[in-house]
Design a binder for these strands. Structure first.
Ligand SMILES: [Mn+2]
Ligand SMILES: [Mn+2]
Ligand SMILES: [Zn+2]
Ligand SMILES: [Zn+2]
Lengths: 156, 156
DNA sequence: AAGAAAGTGAAAACGATTATCAGTATCGAC
DNA sequence: GTCGATACTGATAATCGTTTTCACTTTCTT
């Protein structure tokens, strides 16, 4: 639980940055998430806290968390970034329900291997990739044709 | 060459829309491209033409081209949309050079088949997907360590 | 305690895209 | 061809997520 916060603070120290109350609160809120969260969503989660934390500081802290290697930023289709924990998690890709917005994670070593092959064949030296599948989840498929989906659209 | 323009105009007619000079010029410029082009890039290509065509109209016409099934919109990481021809082209994915921005296309039936498997296993009903590989292209790998890349960053 | 350096948040700036709106072009009916 | 309903255009303003600016505050080392 607290080791990630510690890691973050150690990163700050190493980089000559300061461990402020705001950063701790934001980092705690981030580490407490289990899903993909937007800057705005995280902002709302820390909203009730003591110092009136600004959305700007949430953005800045999320960037620091990325720099520290503790957060990943994802760009799904809808124009806003979503963030998720990075440390100690292995690589995965995502399936997004076009109806309810639900995000499901998966990993396929076979797909990754094939990607490597393709890339090598084309003379590229791969650094990272992004694989997103879009479709209807089981729930939304079942509810198809029965009016708009039952789940919320927003994610975080 | 001209059959795509014809298809577009037929679409406009079918949809009760009008075939304006601007739309024709923009569509011609679009069909003349061979790469992935941004709205701004297409705007520059039609810029010298007779009616002072506005960027807004380029955006609107690109949307119509999509509706007509003649253009695909791609969202790579950098916040702006790129457009490419759709008609008569089969599905493909992209490798983007992180150094020079060069975009290379590829297709892998094996990868697509595996994606299908994964999705089915998770109870999703797939609609479309996005696979982007990022890395250094051959040229940029060769030039590595010899200062900034030689190619332009911009695409269109 | 004191000062250098970094951090904060309100507000403004940004960049790509979309909406508004008053004036203009298109096109089918005549 | 003319006419008129309807769609279209482009300048401008608005949006939206994110970043910058900047005057003031906090941290942290000595
Ligand atoms: Mn994830
Ligand atoms: Mn392409
Ligand atoms: Zn769903
Ligand atoms: Zn390159």
């Amino acid at each position: 639980m607290h080791d990630k916060l510690l890691q973050f603070q150690q990163y700050l120290h190493r980089a000559g940055l300061k461990a402020t109350r705001q950063r701790e609160l934001i980092a705690r809120a981030f580490f407490a998430t289990t899903t993909h969260v937007s800057a705005e969503g995280l902002y709302r989660r820390v909203g009730g806290r003591h110092p009136r934390i600004g959305l700007v500081t949430v953005y800045r802290t999320l960037k620091l968390l990325k720099d520290a290697g503790l957060a990943h930023e994802r760009q799904f289709g809808d124009g806003r970034a979503l963030f998720e924990h990075a440390s100690s998690e292995r690589h995965h890709d995502h399936i997004i329900c076009t109806e309810c917005g639900k995000i499901t994670e998966f990993a396929s070593v076979e797909i990754e291997a094939l990607q490597e092959q393709v890339v090598r064949r084309l003379g590229f030296h791969i650094q990272y990739h992004k694989l997103e599948l879009y479709g209807r989840c089981r729930d939304c498929s079942a509810a198809a044709g029965k009016g708009p989906g039952v789940h919320a659209i927003g994610v975080g």
